[in-house]
């Protein structure tokens, strides 16, 4: 059963993203939104964790939230896919359920 996980907290401020990675099963998708998008950037202390999960999980990041925070596409960890609000809706429909980590 494929689940979509959304994370809206900065991984440097809360352990929300860490818990999500720990509990997301293989084949699930993780969509970073709001302050969660900072974790998608290269060369951070969180990058190694994401790189090692890249094979089993699919990672997405919400474009408008990146733009608001001044994050350019080339600053993202390789493998991240950028989606807009319509893409967010599509992901919600494509997955069997959604877990919104708060």
């Amino acid at each position: 059963m494929a689940m979509l996980h959304t994370v809206n907290k900065s991984s440097f401020d809360r352990n929300t993203f860490e818990s999500c990675l720990r509990l997301a099963k293989e084949g699930s998708s993780v969509l970073l939104i709001e302050d969660g998008v900072y974790a998608a950037m290269k060369n951070t202390t969180a990058a190694e964790q994401i790189n090692s999960a890249m094979g089993t999980l699919t990672f997405y990041v919400l474009g408008p939230d990146m733009d608001a925070r001044g994050i350019k596409a080339d600053a993202l960890i390789d493998g991240f896919k950028i989606v807009d609000y319509n893409g967010f809706v599509d992901l919600s429909i494509e997955h069997d359920s959604v877990q919104s980590w708060l």
Binding site: G63, P64, D65, D67, A68, R69, G70, K72, D84
Partner: peptide
């Protein structure tokens, strides 16, 4: 992060 360049909030 408050001081990041290129912030553009039209989308949110």
């Amino acid at each position: 992060y408050q001081l990041m360049k290129n912030q553009s909030t039209a989308g949110i």
